[in-house]
Amino acid sequence: MNILYLNNSVHLGGDTKCILKLCKELKHSNKVIMASNGGSLINEFEKMGIKHYKIKPVSSINIFSMIFNIILIIKIVKKESIDIIHSHHRMTTLMSKIASKFVKVKVVHTQHLCIENKFFLTRLTLNNIKTITVSEGAKEILKRKCKLNEKNITTIYNTIELECKNKEVDLKLLELKEKGFFLVAQVSRIIDYKGVYDFVDVAESTVKNNKDIRFLLIGEGEESENLKKYIKQGNLEEYVYVLGSKDNVIEHLKYIDLVLLCSHIEGLPLVPLEAFSERVPVIATNIEGTKEEIVDGENGFLVEPKNIEVFTEKINDIFNNKELYNSLKENAYKIFKEKFDVDRYIAEHVALYNKVLYSE
């Protein structure tokens, strides 16, 4: 089949990683095309030989950009004989839906986040569109808040890319590991809803009584400079380090002892899966999506959002209990293999594509 993957941008985020994985696994037996406004990972698609078309940004509604993009999508579908458009952004899905009225093509959407607003626009966009949700939590929101038909929604848990050619690891991380510190990391964009300030607060609370632990933030974002100021104000520069974004997170996780995820909202975050693949336990917020990855007490712990005290308590429990830590590590890998295997991920996508193309 001929597939067009469509997204607003291709950045260092979970949605782009999912598209990259689909392209890598499906390009050998299918024609795969990509369209986006570009981004930091565009070279990764080019390395795979994936043709890329550039659309105009869709994050803010601009009628002229929308018209341009709709016309471009129609042209791509005709030129490349596209059978199915798989969109990973609500606005690109809306534009694809409109384009499908003028050209014969099927549209599939992946909902990556458990949305908290814009329910009407989401319903308008996704009504009668086959939709993939990355968690049962996201599916429930589309059913209850957006009033979408359950028969059009399928949950497919994410997977991750385990292979990584770039083996270079941040020197600060290696230095801290060599000194024997217990390393706790959060890997995320540095934006408010990822709970990055909570992460710093957890670090401050923890190191008051344990000087053998260091905290690392791997990522960047609009709050990067403000967060560095926050760390400095708390006199935490010796304990909390912002390492910036990395295109080889898996390689860095090989040196990490524990991962935190302090997010306030997620879909099905990839970082816990990456951590589990390296036998690294995760302490994360008890929110939709994330709680489907973590079995409390088996491969990590779930903590209510913003509960700094309990995050600190769980870190200390793991640090002080070798038997508990080893058990969490082994269960992390076991659950990863059982629930988030790449073969399952690809097979479920292909099955859905075939259903959309041939069963309607």
Rank of each mutant, 00 (worst) to 15 (best):
G219P: 10
I256K: 03
D198E: 12
V310Y: 07
N299R: 01
I315S: 09
L258W: 00
V356Q: 13
K31P: 00
T110Q: 08
V350S: 03
Q111I: 02
Q233G: 10
A203H: 05
K306A: 05
L113C: 13
I55A: 06
V169C: 06
V10G: 06
E330R: 14
G13L: 04
E348K: 15
T155E: 13
E163H: 13
I265M: 12
V103T: 14
I218K: 13
Q111D: 09
K167I: 07
I250G: 06
E348Y: 13
I82L: 09
L113T: 13
T110P: 07
S40G: 00
N316F: 10
H11D: 15
R123G: 02
A332I: 00
S245T: 12
G221F: 06
K254T: 01
I156H: 05
E330F: 08
N248P: 06
I63H: 11
G244L: 09
I191V: 12
G195P: 13
E225G: 03
K139V: 01
M66C: 15
K228W: 04
I82K: 08
K339F: 10
I76C: 10
E238P: 00
I33M: 06
N149P: 10
C146R: 07
P269N: 04
T93H: 07
V169G: 03
N8Y: 09
Y5A: 02
M66W: 15
D170S: 07
N320A: 10
T16A: 03
I141G: 06
D317Y: 02
